[in-house]
Amino acid sequence: MSETSVSTEVAEAVVGGAGAPGAPAPRARRSRRSAEGGSRGGLAGLLGYLPVAFLLVFGGIPIVFSLLLMFGHLGGPNAAISELGQGEIPAHGIGTLGAITQLFENASYRQDIFATVMVFVVTAAVVLAIAALLTFWHRLRPSKPLAVLQFLAVIPLFIPVVIASFSLWTFWGDRGFTNSLAQLAGWSNGLIFSGRIQGVILAETWVSLPFAVLLLRAGVASLGDSSLDAGRDAGARPFTIARRIMLPQLRRECTVVFCFTAVGALGSFTVPYIVGPSSPVMLGVDAVNTYTAYNQPQQAAVIGFTIFVLAALIGCVYALGSRSRRVGRG
């Protein structure tokens, strides 16, 4: 029960962070529209506010409580949670940075942050590269094997992450398929990824690939044949066409793939929990452990906030990358 509540909290922080730079615009627009409707349409207009109210109640307010908890305000709405927790650092006056400094002074926490950043950056880059390779190549030189590969890449979408993580953990373990193969080739213990940060990256890639492939496949399909043919006609080889004609036109799609994969990996729990190493752990695992296994809700809030800040940084990348000067298409 308590585990569920912390993972929602983490998820909220992540969603809030990712949405922060991109999402508010449409939301603001929508509410303005509904305000107009309200003056005219009464009930229908009020209904427009429901999503906003929903977000505030189930997203906004818990985040505020969580921030208060982080800065040591253990009373009021946080009384129940802090009474059950341990290791709290209470605020004197407007708040304390005690819980934050306590965590950041801890070398293992800094390693966790570093590992998390590395995982989401590398995962996002790898996912984008693979998805782009598959979809761009297939667009330029359609072939059966590539079509099959694209189809296979979407399959993880239909496999629950827990089951997938456990299977991958087994598959990449020292008695798993990859290592057995390596041993057959005379390379002892050469291909073990379970319990390693590389394994987390691989598994996150596996989990994130379907969305990336689907999105880029749609993007690539929207490029006109003649636009690509004109590139070949002008003397560009496929790689040049991909880089100089397709990529710039699909910059927004690529940004979405990169940022969503990054945010997904950043906030993930199951994959690093099952596949990842005992140390360093990713922040999502850290947050859940700190809340449930260490029983330190205040420190868990700090971790949640760290995730939020990282997500906000990814959000900035998203805002920059999707700010399009492209006018021709769409």
């Binding site: 003649s226 043919d229 004109a230 710039p248 492209r326 021709g328």
Partner: peptide, 8 residues
């Protein structure tokens, strides 16, 4: 036949 200039 189609307008095929590269929009970017």
């Amino acid at each position: 036949q189609q307008l095929s200039l590269w929009p970017h």
